[in-house]
Design a protein around this nucleic acid. Structure first.
Lengths: 242, 242
DNA sequence: CGACCGTTTGATTTAGCTCAACATCTGTGG
DNA sequence: CCACAGATGTTGAGCTAAATCAAACGGTCG
């Protein structure tokens, strides 16, 4: 089921099976998109939103010199550009990182849902607010943490989110991004990412090698990164999930 | 009228007079809050949202060492914590900067609006998405700009937003915050804010003195700051407003 | 008038950037 | 299966923006 990960993504008890089927039914098309390809361009009108089923996507903005700042990383189960539905166009670009399987939900179908399923539409609103909460945390990350901490914080967040959709366990998950991507996310150069990763590795906090993140001691990493997962609004017992 | 600035705040044509009166009618109480006082605490349940009528407020998160990162600055007309309505509690703290006049809208009243005014409730959703768009831009600011540019970018954004609610014109507006606040917003120390402000002043780009921002040449400042106001989703002709 | 908060300036240190070289990995075609 | 090319990762040396520490200055309000 395409929406399976969307279900367990957040606050799992909040969506009924029937509502999930409504979302599933709103999907018009399932596509596979090659890695590193732009999907949405800032400013251009959009008429469908993208539910990510498999792979990694990101949202980003470039400065005038062409340097990229990634403002969101999306994992399976995320509604990548749901906010484009009320906004009609986006203020940023969207691209795939890896090869991706996506489900396209036309805005006219969302329109119908809004009219007929008040609770579900509330959940869609909620979903966009979760993104905003992550944006805030990213602001905190960039404003207050040093390079080591930023990377640690990013890995902590991704671990929690991956874990919530069944893609991480025992302190380890697969993450097919480059050190350059990490740099563009954390506002540091790829050279310095490399050095920071070495620090973290030498301190036994986290390794990131061959597209795999391993966190031997999550509590220790979270402490270094000043990471408090409350902003992800998971179930209170999310900690219990390993 | 308390909601006057909320109306003209964004995409002014999107709210009808009748809808505005519905919002106005949902206000339960108008309060004046002293400067520098905390209004909402992260994690605590909230039962009303705050429409800022006069003054400046901010949303922030502290790291373990107590250093503050401001993640949003709110001006009159902003719905400060509307996202707290679907979320039920916030992931950050909210405080006043100056003395503030606020209108409190109980969530039960919002609940009623959602049920009875679909277009208006869409506009409320839209309003929270505008906040998210600003969060993204702040991520960009912190990730890609140096100290001078960050401050310039912040002033550009605030000018546009202040202008949209009639609180800025001819390149100048009143801004009752300290250099410390600017630092906590831009992720730099207050000492360095001071030096960066001197740079900007010496270059004739912007002055910030006695709680007043003066921008002699907005285009020049915007260029330095890589500032593109599209993310604010104002009317296409917002540039025309002086 | 003095106390306090915010601003300004100087001296020193440091985290991260830049530039440059080299190593390793991955996918591709011969 | 190997050779190669391009992308990604690693390391070093030197430089720069910003932090830190410290002190003095200037409004403003009891």
């Amino acid at each position: 089921m395409l929406t399976e990960r969307f279900l367990c993504n957040r606050r799992r008890r909040e969506l009924s099976k029937e509502e999930l089927e409504v979302v599933e039914g709103a999907i018009a098309e399932v596509r596979t998109i090659p890695p590193r390809s732009q999907v949405v361009t800032a400013g251009k009108p959009i008429h469908a939103s993208t539910l990510l089923v498999e792979g990694l996507m990101c949202r980003y903005m470039d400065d005038r010199a062409g340097n990229r700042q990634i403002v969101a990383i999306h994992i399976p189960g995320d509604f990548v550009d749901l906010h484009g539905f009320p906004l009609k166009h986006l203020d940023h670009d969207v691209a795939t990182i890896t090869s991706c399987k996506v489900a396209c939900v036309p805005h006219e179908n969302l329109e119908t849902i809004i009219g007929t399923h008040p609770h579900l539409s509330r959940q869609l609103w909620f979903s966009t607010l979760m993104d905003a909460a992550m944006h805030r945390e990213w602001t905190f990350r960039l404003g207050r943490l040093d390079a080591n901490q930023r990377i640690a914080h990013l890995f902590c967040e991704l671990y929690c989110r991956m874990n919530a959709v069944g893609l991480a366990k025992d302190g380890s998950f697969s993450l097919a991004i480059t050190q350059q991507d990490v740099g563009e996310t954390c506002g540091i150069t790829s050279v310095h990412v490399n050095r920071a990763l070495r620090n973290l590795r030498n301190d036994g906090l986290v390794t990131f090698r061959s597209k795999k993140v391993v966190i031997p001691d999550r509590a220790k990493l979270a402490k270094l990164a000043d990471f408090e997962p409350n902003y992800l609004f998971f179930d209170p017992d999310f900690e219990a999930l390993s």
